[in-house]
Design a protein around this nucleic acid. Structure first.
Lengths: 317, 317
DNA sequence: TTGTAAGCGTTATCAA
DNA sequence: TTGATAACGCTTACAA
């Protein structure tokens, strides 16, 4: 009986015997391990997705095998090959919108769920409500009186980024805000390029340039802060800055950063739960939004727009 | 012959066949996987150790299985149990000075090398030159003219921390600098506790309190910056601040932080190389120092001490 | 209920 | 050189 089996297992364990998980995997055809592909450990947002995922994995008796892909498709391929038999499925947080990796997983029949970044085609994915996050930051700026708002997005091709810019554009349109072409920056996020872009946007006279800048992520936001500081533009008295993602250091930047905190930990957690149901064959392609809503963390990088700007905005043309 | 074997493997691969790595592990008794235990993904210093380790692992045909231990011994135990058969050895970056985990690894005969943090007893370990890092930051402060220097270390029990405080104490002694008892803070690094400690140290009159504060890591340093800002103490004009570890955000803090950059990536790399030699049975217990020296990144949080302090320091008593 | 054997996909050994 | 076979350590199905 099962109970006796348990007792024997326990007794054996006391004597120093432990079942060999490799042999177990081979016999069972199941590894009780889940792979997780992360663009980079360097981005703190992923650190907490991993933390959440790992907790969920451990709670369900699985181990989580995490790798850093550097957003490099060739590396991802190698890692998937090497982990294919050792893991029962994958949480993929580093998919590009058109990723050969996703194709590879599909053709090899490896179960997977996308996290944070979706990809073209049908598959199960778990994402946070980035649109709501952007929306709430814009609403807040709007409430403060800002009407001229720029968005620093970075290059095309990543789902999350597109969702965030999309939400920005929707808001701007629905509120009838001004939208000169270069107020949405789509260039490289490399420090010098970004600074050049920011400088261009800010080179207009004070009553024509944006009174608020929204950045696509935390690092970009902090570069913006430093950039404005270098340009001699005050934050928040001249320009307000809002970031995306949160992290202890965000509080200690040149100006403590107002930013959108995404439920990253819950996202990681839900991704593995979703993957587990896929492994049980219970799931069909669909997109899951994590229920936990984003949160706007208001600190000191935002304020009402400068008075001249207000005057100019109200002056009839 | 071996060559034919290769050709057949290649042909089979074309046809979609791939050797099953689990079966391979079982047969070979070797998994070609290495475990890595990290205190927390949230600390950016570890992110780059992982990056280095993963590169070295991949280059040698291994996969790196990384887990976040939360510095929790119980969790480490579970993770080691679950990875014991799936990995050939472990890189342990989250060992406490007296860690049951190390004992566990030893009694189960699992090969391992300690990274960054050493532990009591004999074992192979890879560390950076923390002492040199601290030393160079203190030399720099000294050169600027600082003589009253405080060190915020945090709780006892972690090897790296002890090495850093040790180096601080050595320097202070060798230079005959003043060293009131509470200038070395050994309390909790929780924000409120740390702030209380800092406030106490800074509550002395300006010409008696420290003119420079050195922090044990990046987060602590940024908390110190914010703390001083809150106290209305200027950085660097009233007090200089030096951190430990570097990260892109360090440049964007309230004051761009002068800090010691450790060769974290090289450390991770070397740890897996070291582990690989252990696995080949070539290694006896020893400590390896990573050759790459620390680097002092000078930014804007340090300057010459304030003039009144200089005057007071020079005034004969 | 208990014990035995087959199978998981490799590699390694030993005859042929 | 080739080909069959045991072994890795577990699970499960089937006979005793």
């Amino acid at each position: 009986m099962a109970e006796t089996r348990e007792r024997i297992f326990e007794a054996a364990k006391q004597l120093g015997w432990r079942p060999n998980s490799v042999a177990r995997s081979l016999s069972l055809g199941r590894a009780y391990a889940l792979g997780m592909l992360i663009p980079t450990f360097a981005n703190p947002a992923y650190a907490s997705m991993i933390a959440g995922a790992q907790r969920a994995a451990e709670d369900s008796g699985n181990v989580l095998l995490v790798t850093d892909t550097s957003d490099n498709e060739a590396r991802m391929k190698v890692q998937i090959e090497r982990l294919a038999d050792r893991a029962d499925g994958f949480v993929v947080a580093s998919a590009a919108l058109n990723s050969p990796t996703v194709a590879l997983l599909q053709e090899r029949g490896l179960p997977f769920v996308l996290l944070n970044r979706r990809s073209a085609g049908e598959h199960v994915s778990v994402v946070g409500d980035d649109e709501a996050g952007v929306h709430m930051s814009l609403e807040y700026l709007s409430l403060l009186g800002h009407r001229r708002i720029a968005y620093l997005a970075g290059p095309r091709g990543v789902d999350t980024v597109e969702r965030r810019v999309g939400a920005f554009r929707d808001f701007v349109r629905s509120q009838g805000l001004p939208m000169p072409k270069d107020w949405v920056y789509r260039g490289s996020l490399a420090p010098d390029r970004l600074l050049a872009g920011l400088t261009r946007i800010m080179s207009a006279p004070a009553d024509e340039r944006p009174t608020a800048v929204v950045a696509v992520n935390l690092l970009t936001a902090s570069q913006v802060l430093s950039g404005l500081r270098g340009l001699g533009i005050g934050v928040p008295e001249d320009v307000s800055v809002v970031g995306f993602d949160d992290w202890p250091l965000a509080e200690h930047l040149w100006r403590p950063l107002t930013t959108v905190r995404m439920p990253t930990e819950a996202m990681g957690e839900q991704a593995v739960r979703e993957l587990l149901t896929v492994l049980e064959g219970q799931s069909s392609p669909r997109e899951t939004r994590v229920e936990v809503p984003p949160e706007l963390i208001i600190r000191e990088s935002t304020a009402i727009p400068p008075v001249p700007a207000l005057r100019s905005a109200r002056r009839p043309r």
